[in-house]
Structure formats: structure tokens, C-alpha cells
């Protein structure tokens, strides 16, 4: 029986008048890669923000390792988030800091490591994501793929127990996409961490996912392994997987 790392329990999220999630429940299995798919604007990224407390639900609860994080005050959430890495869609690197300083920031703020130790670990982590000798460069000097990889490095440098990836391969060429997909798998194996990936990229999802959840109109309409999802009889799931214009999904 797989251990549950996180559980969204009957969660409702609204942005103003718009209801993004309605009584949504979802389990995230510990140590597995769970991919969340769905239409643009369906609320996939909101699930990631719920999981690390960046977003509080309007109703329902979010449990991480059995602990209800929806009631935690911001001060406690700050400590809690140190255990969860977050790789943003556009990396969200701090443009006033060099790549090395970006990746080193969580270590400088949360550990008592010495400067040489930090530099050493930053170099190793950057090499681990295929980036060498870029420590002194600034985010504006790197390509999209390199920025994403630097974002990965920053998200995993503290050895988090869970890593959240928001659209890790969007807008990248097939080679870099394959490289990053492989990297997510390797990082999971290396850190033994739970991973939650939000993506539209079905090829990548088929390669890396242990479990896939499909979000549609504020609810999870399908959940299972890649094979289970492919065999789903739900016409919405089938239309989405086939990328067809014809079907029950309104365009």
C-alpha cells in the first residue's frame, strides 16, 4: 500500500467570482511522480500553490504528511516551505542575483554552511542539471532551457522531501524537453523525493509519470497510472489525450 504524502480534501478555490476548484480531492503518493494535466486555466498550477501553502483554499483542507497546512500561520508556513522545492514555469530566478547566488540563496538563508561549502555544493548541483561554469552569469544571459535548469537546481539544492514542477518543459525544443524530463526522473531517484508535475506535454508525462490526474472544470475526473489513463472510457480524457477538436470539451 503506497504511503500518501499529501491530500487535498474537498478543496474549493475561487479567484474573485470565478470558481476554479469545487470540492476537489486528490492524493499525492509519497516518493512517486504525480503529473497533473488539464486545459489551460483549469487550475493546475493552483494545486501546486495549495500544496506548499502559497495559496489557501476558500474551503476544504490540505494535508501534507498528515498535517493540516491550511490553518498554519504565515510564520510557520515559511518553515514548512523549506522542505518543498518549487520549480516555477518561468524559473522566477532573481534577476539582480547571479545564477550562483540564486542557487545558493536557500543555503545562505537556512543553513550554517561556510562559503566554500556553499560554492562547492552550488557547483555540484548546477553540474547535476547540466550547467557548468555559469555561476557568475546573470539570468538575462542564459537561454530558456538553461534558466529552467537553474530553477531546478535552486529547487532541489536543499534536498527537499517534495519537488513541485510548474510546466517544466513548456516552450522548449524537443531535445531540451527530453533532457529535462529525464532530469526530473533522475532527481527523484537521487533525492528519493515526491514530485508533482503540472504539464501539457503528454510525451514527457508518459515518460516520467507514476500517476496522472486530470483536472477538468474544477474537479479531478481521472486518476491512475499512464496505462490506466490511456484506457479510460471517459470521453473528456480521450479527447484531451488525442488532442482532438471533436468531443465533449467546449472549445
Amino acid at each position: 500500500m503506497a504511503e500518501i504524502y499529501a491530500h487535498l480534501d474537498d478543496v474549493t478555490v475561487r479567484y474573485g467570482e470565478k470558481v476554479v476548484m469545487q470540492n476537489l480531492s486528490l492524493d499525492i503518493v509519497e516518493g512517486a511522480i504525480t503529473c497533473i494535466i488539464g486545459l489551460s486555466g483549469a487550475g493546475k498550477s493552483t494545486i501546486l500553490r495549495l500544496l506548499n501553502g502559497l495559496k489557501r483554499p476558500n474551503a476544504g483542507r490540505v494535508f501534507v504528511k498528515g498535517r493540516d497546512i491550511t490553518q498554519l500561520p504565515e510564520r510557520e508556513l515559511i518553515g514548512f516551505r523549506q522542505k518543498i522545492g518549487f520549480s516555477f514555469q518561468f524559473a522566477a530566478l532573481f534577476d539582480s542575483l547571479s545564477i550562483g547566488e540564486n542557487v545558493a540563496l536557500p543555503l545562505r538563508e537556512h543553513t550554517k554552511m561556510t562559503d566554500p561549502e556553499i560554492r562547492n555544493l552550488v557547483s555540484q548541483t548546477l553540474e547535476g542539471v547540466g550547467l557548468s561554469h555559469v555561476e557568475e552569469r546573470f539570468p538575462s544571459e542564459l537561454s530558456g532551457g538553461m534558466i529552467k535548469r537553474a530553477g531546478f537546481a535552486r529547487a532541489v539544492i536543499t534536498n527537499p522531501e517534495c519537488v513541485l514542477y510548474d510546466e517544466p518543459t513548456t516552450g522548449l525544443d524537443p531535445i531540451i524537453t527530453h533532457l529535462l524530463t529525464d532530469m526530473i526522473k533522475r532527481l527523484r531517484a537521487k533525492l528519493n523525493a515526491t514530485a508533482v508535475v503540472v504539464s501539457h506535454d503528454l510525451e514527457s508525462i508518459y515518460l516520467m509519470a507514476d500517476y496522472v490526474a486530470m483536472l477538468f472544470e474544477g474537479a479531478i475526473i481521472a486518476y491512475g497510472t499512464v496505462d490506466e489513463l490511456k484506457r479510460s472510457l471517459n470521453p473528456i480524457v480521450q479527447q484531451f489525450l488525442q488532442g482532438s477538436e471533436v468531443g465533449p470539451i467546449p472549445i
Binding site: L54, F80, A92, L93, R154
Partner: peptide
Amino acid sequence: EQIEALQALG
């Protein structure tokens, strides 16, 4: 998203 990134880093 740099402010969110700061929060996400704790």
C-alpha cells in the same frame, strides 16, 4: 513570480 519564489524558498 520572484516574490512567490522567495516565499516558496521559505
